[in-house]
Amino acid sequence: MRAAARALGLCLGLCALGLLLAALCTDHWYETDPRRHRRSCEAARRPPLPLRRAPPPPPPLPPRCARPLFATHAGLWRTCYYLGVDTRLDSLVRSGIAQRCTAIKYHFSQPIRLRNVPFNLTKAIQQDEWHLLHLRRITAGFLGMAAAVLLCGCIVAAVSFFWEESLTQHVAGLLFLMTGIFCTISLCTYAASISYDLNRLPKFIYSLPDDVEHGYSWSIFCAWCSLGFTVAAGCLCTAYPFVSRSKIMQLKSARDSSV
């Protein structure tokens, strides 16, 4: 029974490690899909049927259609465009004019001064960039620490099969629980960074129109599943030595009383 508990804890830890590494290495934490928004803008741009021979002037574009939006998927390290959604973007990427993926900055750089934007608003943009940079650093830093501690926990759990079973299993459980804390902090700060980024000022630059579909993708769900497996492995490895020890003590006391 002890060997089965150790094997189950190790399997849960290895599964959590694989999911966490998949979340770290993939770029599908958050996705945007503006195809519905583009269709509505094209319908607003289309002129009504003319009643006379002279074509009427095209109607003005709504303000929400002034900014070009593309289908993207982003992770901790890169933001990439989806190919096959916009033919104009596909041609720009193939010709080398536009890059399909751009690196996410983890160092502070002065943003470009926008024309016809007051100095106070430019200062607010710089402060928002600084706060967002801190949230990104916390997310990546704690997730990296979570992966390192989880790897150490798996190694200690594997050592528990050969040396000091109860002690090493207990230490592995504590490392798994520490990984869960780091992973929880990282996921919460990532959600905070997404919300902060979408609510930045000015709204016409950073916010998304209501008809743009956006949300979390499968990479962050891998991280959440990793968190669940990690907590389960930590609870199992931490609690089982005490449970088995109490059972042994009960059996010994029952044997002594029978004698």
Rank of each mutant, 00 (worst) to 15 (best):
F162W: 07
M178D: 07
M178E: 07
S160A: 14
E164Y: 11
F176K: 03
L174D: 02
A192I: 12
F182M: 12
T189K: 04
L175Q: 00
Y190R: 07
L167Y: 10
T179Y: 04
F182T: 07
T184A: 14
S186Y: 05
I194H: 13
P202K: 08
A191R: 08
G180C: 04
G173L: 01
L175A: 00
E164Q: 15
S193H: 13
L175R: 00
T184P: 06
T168F: 11
L174Q: 06
S193P: 04
T189I: 08
E164S: 13
E164D: 13
S195K: 15
S186Q: 06
A192K: 14
D197W: 15
L201K: 12
T168Q: 10
V171A: 04
F176T: 02
H170Y: 13
H170K: 11
W163G: 01
A192H: 12
M178W: 08
G180Y: 03
I185M: 05
L187G: 02
T184K: 10
T184V: 09
T184D: 12
L174E: 02
W163Q: 15
I194V: 15
C188Q: 15
G173Q: 06
R200W: 01
V171M: 10
L187H: 04
E165C: 14
I181T: 09
G173F: 00
I194K: 13
S195A: 10
P202T: 02
F182W: 07
Y196W: 05
S160K: 06
R200L: 02
L177Q: 01
Q169G: 15
L177Y: 02
Y190I: 01
M178C: 13
Y190T: 00
S193C: 06
F182G: 10
S166E: 13
N199W: 04
L174C: 12
S193D: 14
P202L: 03
L187C: 01
T179C: 09
S166F: 12
L167K: 10
F176M: 07
M178Y: 08
R200K: 04
V171Y: 04
E164G: 12
S186C: 06
L175Y: 00
G173N: 00
I181P: 03
F176V: 04
A192W: 09
L175D: 01
I185P: 02
T179W: 01
Y196N: 01
G180V: 07
L174T: 03
F162R: 06
N199A: 05
K203A: 14
C188P: 05
A191T: 07
A191V: 11
F161P: 05
T168W: 08
L174G: 11
M178F: 13
S193I: 05
L177R: 05
F162M: 03
W163C: 15
Y196V: 01
A172K: 00
F176G: 05
T168E: 02
L198Q: 10
I194Y: 13
T168C: 11
P202S: 01
L201M: 14
C188V: 15
L167G: 09
L175G: 02
T189F: 13
T179E: 08
E165R: 09
T168I: 09
F161I: 08
T184M: 10
S186I: 03
L175C: 03
D197S: 14
Y196C: 00
Y196T: 06
E165D: 09
H170G: 14
D197C: 12
P202W: 01
A191D: 02
S166M: 07
A192R: 11
L187S: 07
W163R: 15
T179G: 11
D197T: 14
H170V: 08
S160I: 03
F182R: 06
